[in-house]
Measured scan of single mutants.
Amino acid sequence: NSASGPLPDGWEQAMTQDGEIYYINHKNKTTSWLDPRLDPRFAMNQR
């Protein structure tokens, strides 16, 4: 992992069949290639 600590509440790390890691936001029912622990847009929304 490139980030430390647990994923934010509602997020899950998953892997594609090709072995690529992505992240699932169960609250918004969206997915992201960016780790939410590193995404400044997500961090701003949590303050």
Rank of each mutant, 00 (worst) to 15 (best):
P40L: 15
L7E: 04
Y23K: 00
H26S: 08
T30Q: 15
N45L: 13
Q46T: 10
A3R: 10
R37W: 03
G5Y: 07
W33H: 04
R47G: 13
G10A: 04
H26N: 04
L34Q: 06
L38M: 12
Y23W: 08
F42Q: 14
T31D: 00
N45A: 10
T16M: 03
I24A: 03
H26W: 06
N45H: 09
K27A: 11
P6D: 10
D35C: 05
H26Q: 11
K27D: 07
Q13T: 12
I21V: 13
R41W: 15
S32I: 01
N45E: 08
D39V: 14
W11H: 02
N25H: 14
S2R: 07
D9E: 10
S32M: 04
D35L: 03
R37I: 01
A43N: 14
G10I: 03
R37D: 01
Q46W: 05
M15Y: 12
Y23Q: 00
A3G: 11
F42T: 13
Y22W: 02
N45G: 08
M15P: 04
A14G: 10
L34A: 09
Q46K: 15
F42L: 12
H26G: 05
N25G: 02
M44L: 10
L7I: 08
P40D: 15
K29L: 04
F42Y: 10
I24G: 00
S32V: 01
P6N: 13
I21R: 12
L7C: 08
D39H: 15
G19V: 03
I21N: 08
E20N: 07
T30P: 00
A43W: 11
T16A: 07
S4H: 05
E12F: 04
P40A: 13
Q46V: 10
G10K: 05
I24M: 08
P40R: 12
Y23S: 00
Q46F: 09
L34K: 14
R37F: 03
P6R: 14
T16P: 00
G5S: 09
G10P: 05
P8D: 04
R41V: 15
R41K: 12
A43L: 10
D39F: 15
F42R: 12
M44P: 07
W33K: 02
L34V: 09
E20A: 05
G10W: 05
E12Y: 05
N28L: 15
D9H: 08
S2Y: 07
L34E: 03
M44V: 10
S2D: 13
